[in-house]
Every structure is written in C-alpha cells, then in structure tokens.
Amino acid sequence: MPGEFELIRRYFSRPTPQTVLGPGDDCALLAPTPDMQLAITTDMLVEGTHFLADTDTDPAQLGWKALAVNLSDLAAMGARPRWTLLAGSLPEAREAWLAAFAEGLFDCAQRYQVDLVGGDTTRGPLNLCLTAIGEIPAGAALRRDRGVPGDDLWISGQPGLAALGLAHLQRRTQLPGALADRCIASLQRPLPRVELGLELRLRGLANAAIDVSDGLLADLGHIVESSAVAAEIFVAQLPSLPAGADPVLARRCQLAGGDDYELLFSAPPASRPAIADLAARLELPLWRCGRLRGAAAIGLTLLDENGQALTIDERGFDHFG
C-alpha cells in the first residue's frame, strides 16, 4: 500500500495556477492581490455529526461538500474564493475512497476556481477539516454587524430541503421519490452562493449577510445580535413548502433546519428592483421574507399571514445545545 506522501501526491496534487508555491514544501506561498484583504474560514466535517456514517459509500459527494461549506462562508462576505487547505484523519487509506473523494473535492474547486495548496493527513476517526481563503477589497466585506433598521430581509433558494433530506435518510419521514432525490442532493451536494455574494457586494445591494448553516432563525439571530437590531420574519413570504412533505416538519426544517448554505441578507428597500433583476439574471429565487427594526423591539419575531406573532420552539442546530 502506498505511504502517506505517495497518497497525497497521487490524489491531492493538482496544478495550482493561482499560487506561487503549492503542495510539496513546508508551506504554500500565496500572493494576495494588491489592496485586497484576505477572508479566511475553516469548517470541520466529522463522521456521525456532520454526515451519516454510511456517507462514505459516496465519497465524491463528501469531497464536494467538504469544500462547498467553506466556500459558503466566503460567499456570505462577498469574497472571491482563491485557495484552500485540507487536513483530515482517516481510519484507513482506501485508495478507491480517496480517489472518489478527491474527484468530488476538485470538481468543487474547479467550479469555483480554487487551488488546493496544502494540508495534513493522519490516521484516526473520519474527520475532514478544510480552510478556505478568499479575497475582498479592503473595507468592502458584507458583515453580520451592518444590518440597519428598516432593511428588508432576503433569503436565497429554498431553505429546509437539506434538513428534509436528512429526516428522510434517518427514516423520520418518507418523501416521494423526486422530492427525496432533490432534498438528499441539497444535503449532500450544496451549492455555495458565491456568485450571489459577489454580486451583492459588487453592486452595493446588501448591508449585512450570513450563510444559513445552522438554521434560518438561528443564523438570523447572529445578525440581530451583531447589528443590535430586532427582526421580523413573515412566514407567508417564505418559499412555498414542497408538495409531498409533511407541512409541520417542512416548516420546522425551513425555519430551524441546517445545512442549506443559502444566503440570508439585509438590504434597504430601495434595492428591491435591483435584487429582483439579480435573481432573474442568476436564475436563483430571492425571497423578501422579513425586515429589521430598531433595537427597542428586541429580539426576533415570527409573524403569520395575519401579522400575529407565532411561538418559536426551535431556532436551529447547536453542537453543544
């Protein structure tokens, strides 16, 4: 069986056109674009916590997701992805598994023009940790603490599908075939909204933004806290629940399910026409689903179609909650 360095060379050494020096030395050498700030994020995927123990039957999907969830953080700040590093522990070095995982990882890297520039491997429980690095003009990042009272709240795509897919795989619900496939794909092969984040930043449309990884309400709570504002979510203006799913579970997944990696952002009402134009151009639904208010109306309120407050039982995922 090949050793550690031969496995890295065989499966994880690819051309790095954006990089001064890629894998193979003690460090990578990067050359940031002048006048740009670096946006750096890291996320860990642990077997049994972030993906089911049998997900290793489809390692290509896992390779895609491992990078995609990091690129979603860059998207939320309007950063352009440039580089990534991969550290992981593996119970054993199965070459077929590594080849498929690497293929999924590099499919995602090629799609978003990212160089893999280094990392580390060791023996242990299956655990994958990627660091992604992007660039953004100094002072231009979309941040959680920039929400303004009066801003509209927008959400991309259809949040809740990934959590429904997980419920289906865990046999907590039974989805019809086409919907099950769609939801499982949302869970296992998320699409980081890099283009959306870049356009929101480049066109100056959004004030605050965050990616929805732990649940719409939970992640909105971070904007509320960081911006010292209150928020209202209008349930009737959220995407329609998918036909064929239990509506109670589907609503819970939409509001508090994780792993969507959609973008939630605030924008002034004057941006509405430009955001509608952007949605059409990207062929990505963007839903105006709420608003920010002054901090005197503390907290986060969920309103039904009649404007009446609803009780919030769940807000989202917390590793230690």
Rank of each mutant, 00 (worst) to 15 (best):
G165F: 03
T41M: 10
Q188Y: 00
R293I: 11
L284V: 01
I210G: 00
S266Q: 08
P17I: 02
D73V: 09
I312A: 00
S227T: 12
L187C: 04
L286A: 01
L310C: 15
E199Y: 02
R10G: 04
F320D: 12
A276V: 13
L71G: 04
E103Q: 15
G258Q: 11
Q158S: 13
T57P: 00
Q174H: 13
A28Y: 01
V69Y: 02
H319T: 09
H222M: 13
A87N: 09
A208G: 04
F5V: 04
A53H: 14
M77A: 07
L71Q: 08
D214E: 14
G257D: 08
E95H: 12
L67N: 02
F101G: 06
T131A: 13
L310N: 08
I133S: 06
G150P: 09
V20L: 14
A140Q: 15
A163G: 13
D219L: 08
T41R: 10
C108Y: 06
A102N: 14
P268W: 11
T121P: 00
A206K: 04
N127R: 15
P242V: 01
V224M: 09
A270N: 06
G88A: 05
M77T: 15
T55Y: 12
I155G: 00
P23W: 00
A79C: 08
V69R: 02
A140L: 07
A250D: 10
D259A: 13
R182P: 07
L90D: 07
N127S: 14
L164G: 07
A132W: 07
A53L: 11
E314L: 12
L169V: 10
R143Q: 11
G78I: 12
G160I: 10
F234Y: 15
A206V: 02
A132P: 05
Q37P: 00
